[in-house]
Amino acid sequence: MHNTLLRSMTAWLLSGAVLLLAGCAAPSTAGSCGLALAAGHSDDDAIRAVIEAEGRLVVSQEIDALMALWAEDAYVANAKNTPDDDTDDQFWRGLDAIRHRYVRMVFPGAPAAALPPELTIDRDGVRAVVTATTRIGSEVAPAGDRWVLIKRGGCWQIASLTYNLEAHQP
C-alpha cells in the first residue's frame, strides 16, 4: 500500500518535473532562430534570411524584432567612405547604442523598401563575412555594407555591420 502510493506520487512528480523543465528549455528566438525558416535550411540560407529580415524590419520599423537579430556584443560602424582609413570610423557599440541608432537616426528617414541586397557570403565555421550591394531605386551602394554574423546556440546572429565602405571617387 505504502509502496504503491509512493510509486504513484513519484510518477506524478516526475511528469511535473519533465513538463516544468521542458518549459524552461524553450527554443531560442535569437537571430535566425526567430525567423520562420524551412526545415533543413542551410547555413547560407539562414545568413541570407537574417540580412533580408533586417532590411524588411527597418522598413516596417519593428524595433524589438530587429534587435533580436543582433548579438549582445554587436556593433555598427560607419566607414565614412574611407574604407582604407579606420581612424575616422564612427561606432555604435552594444545593443543599446544600435537600438538608439535605429530609432533616432534610421527610422526618422522613413526608409523605403529596397530590393533584396546582392550578397557575397564568405563563411568559416561559425563566422561569416557578408558583403552586400544594395540598390534603392537608382541609388546603388556597390559592396557598401559588410556584415559579420556568428553562429551561437545554432542561431546565426549579427555581430557587426560596417557601412559606407564604398570609396568616394576623387
Partner: peptide, 12 residues
C-alpha cells in the same frame, strides 16, 4: 554633435 561636425562613438 553630428550636426556640429564632431566625430563620435556611442554606447551605454
Amino acid at each position: 554633435y553630428d550636426a556640429d561636425g564632431w566625430q563620435y562613438d556611442l554606447g551605454s
